[in-house]
Amino acid sequence: MRRSGPVRALLAASAAAAVSAGLVVAAGGAAQAAPAFRAPMPAHVVAPYYETYSGGSPAALAAQSHNTYLTLAFLQTPTAGSCTATWNGDPTTPVSTSVYGKDIAALQARGGNAIPSFGGYAADTTNTDIADSCTDVKSIASVYEGLVTTYGVTRIDLDVEADSLSNTAGIDRRNKAVALTEAWAKRTHRSVEFSYTLPSTTTGLGATGVALLQNAVANHARVDVVNIMTFDYYDGASHEMATDTETAAAGLHDQLAALYPKVPSSRLWSRIGVTEMPGIDDFGPAETFTPADAVTVERWAAAKKINTLSFWALQRDNGTCPGTTGAGACSGVAQPDWYFSNTFEKFTHPDWPWVSPRSTTPAPKPAAHHATRGIRM
């Protein structure tokens, strides 16, 4: 049922007063304590994806695997044409402190945070990514801003692939909404970063990925991280996955240099992220990211000083199904539980003693880090 104009005005005035008093208004009009402002993301962060549609507690699995940052996937609209984002497109799991609020607060209490991620293959092939679904740029920006005020997050991930990569209207709306959100963050003295997660070839982004970033430049949208998915190449070739990660990132670096010719090389590297798929990916054994590859990639990432190391997904970080292709709950290779998490952990915390993959000792609380500004023309 629609509310009348006077009632809407009264609710708006009440909400403004609550914000001024350090409160936020949750769904239904109840005032709650606003999340504290959070520090920016670390300059070097490990943030595996967590499949929210698989259920369970992200914070519990993060504690078991010694992760302090997680990328929570995915947010999308319940139906095409909607301007409301919910977790997994499920109307019963809205953006609310009652949904993942305790988990995100637990990550923050351990010195980490969550990175909510929009899109993903399912949303990007059903027109339910928020920017494909909603035709109002201000409404899209409002959804992004709501994540910050609801959960106290400081980075939002935009996973754009499949059909969304060729939806030029959606790309333009998304980048315009990013620019609006960044302007809002500046006005309200908040720290908000945006990462783009994009499919990659072994030599960098495809033409559609480059076009997406060109549109970001045109819309004055700051891109803090370009995170490439270095798996599922589906080119029929056998791959040495660590080597291909390095060549893909080098290609991305050169593409960014063409887009941002005034930005120094070291700063371009500091805006790059890579996401692996541990073990046997969806294509099959020819694309197997091995435990040895994880060591190689972590050392390379530290040497290049890239921004983000991630993998798809945390639920797969165990060796219970050797030989299985593209499993959702295991890597398909022989490994100790949490091997990939613990190997990548050194990237975020190089001065800590390495945690053995077999260890159950909780990781210590990290010191605060401060990230540099993202790429902007």
Results as ranks from 00 to 15, higher is better:
residue 17 A to P: 02
residue 235 D to F: 09
residue 72 L to C: 07
residue 36 A to R: 14
residue 363 A to G: 13
residue 276 E to I: 10
residue 157 D to Y: 00
residue 149 T to C: 05
residue 132 D to V: 04
residue 228 I to R: 04
residue 189 H to Q: 14
residue 254 D to P: 04
residue 69 Y to W: 15
residue 332 G to S: 12
residue 284 G to L: 01
residue 116 P to W: 00
residue 310 S to Y: 01
residue 98 S to C: 12
residue 254 D to T: 14
residue 322 P to I: 00
residue 328 G to K: 07
residue 377 M to R: 14
residue 36 A to G: 12
residue 251 G to K: 00
residue 174 R to A: 06
residue 167 N to S: 13
residue 186 K to V: 14
residue 138 K to P: 04
residue 265 S to V: 15
residue 353 P to A: 13
residue 104 I to G: 08
residue 137 V to E: 11
residue 117 S to Y: 03
residue 368 A to H: 09
residue 358 R to P: 01
residue 287 E to T: 02
residue 106 A to Q: 06
residue 95 V to W: 03
residue 286 A to M: 10
residue 50 Y to Q: 05
residue 312 W to I: 01
residue 52 T to V: 15
residue 296 T to A: 15
residue 350 P to I: 10
residue 361 T to D: 07
residue 343 T to Q: 13
residue 152 G to Y: 05
residue 269 W to N: 07
residue 331 S to R: 01
residue 266 S to M: 12
residue 270 S to W: 09
residue 365 K to F: 13
residue 236 G to E: 06
residue 145 E to Q: 15
residue 59 A to M: 13
residue 74 F to L: 09
residue 365 K to M: 14
residue 205 L to W: 11
residue 210 V to S: 04
residue 203 T to C: 03
residue 83 C to H: 10
residue 321 C to I: 09
residue 307 N to E: 10
residue 62 A to E: 07
residue 13 A to I: 06
residue 345 E to G: 09
residue 289 F to H: 07
residue 119 G to A: 02
residue 42 P to D: 01
residue 184 W to E: 10
residue 174 R to C: 07
residue 210 V to R: 04
residue 97 T to R: 15
residue 157 D to N: 11
residue 72 L to H: 03
residue 263 V to D: 13
residue 358 R to I: 06
residue 101 G to L: 05
residue 374 G to W: 06
residue 46 V to A: 01
residue 55 G to M: 09
residue 375 I to L: 15
residue 16 A to W: 07
residue 83 C to I: 05
residue 233 Y to W: 13
residue 88 N to P: 04
residue 107 L to Y: 01
residue 234 Y to T: 05
residue 225 V to G: 02
residue 202 T to Q: 10
residue 262 K to W: 14
residue 32 Q to V: 15
residue 366 P to S: 08
residue 375 I to K: 08
